[in-house]
Amino acid sequence: MKTNYIARAGVIAAVYAACTLVTMLFLGNLAWGPIQFRISEALCALALLTPAAVPGLMLGCAIANIANIALSGTGALGLLDVVFGSLATCVGALFTWKMRRHPAIALAGPVLANALIVPAYLPILLTGVGFYTIPFTSISLDGAWPLMYLFGLVTTGAGEAVIMYVLGYPLYRSLAKTHMMQREVSEVGTSR
Rank of each mutant, 00 (worst) to 15 (best):
M24F: 11
L25G: 10
L25D: 10
F26L: 15
F26W: 13
F26Q: 09
L27G: 13
G28R: 12
G28L: 06
A31Q: 14
A31P: 02
W32C: 04
G33Q: 03
G33K: 04
P34E: 10
I35S: 08
Q36N: 15
F37C: 09
R38D: 15
R38C: 12
R38L: 12
R38K: 11
S40R: 04
A42K: 00
A42C: 13
L43Y: 06
C44K: 02
A45C: 11
L46R: 08
L46K: 07
A47F: 05
L48S: 14
L48I: 09
L48E: 10
L49I: 12
L49W: 07
L49P: 03
T50W: 08
A52V: 04
A52T: 09
V54Y: 13
V54W: 15
P55M: 10
G56Y: 05
G56A: 13
M58Y: 03
M58N: 04
L59F: 13
L59S: 08
G60E: 07
G60M: 10
A62P: 02
A62I: 07
A62V: 10
I63C: 02
I63A: 09
I63H: 01
A64Q: 03
N65P: 06
I66F: 08
I66P: 01
A67P: 00
A67S: 14
A67C: 13
A67E: 01
N68G: 13
N68E: 08
N68D: 10
A70T: 05
L71V: 03
S72P: 03
S72Q: 07
G75K: 04
L77T: 03
L77D: 00
L79Y: 01
L79Q: 00
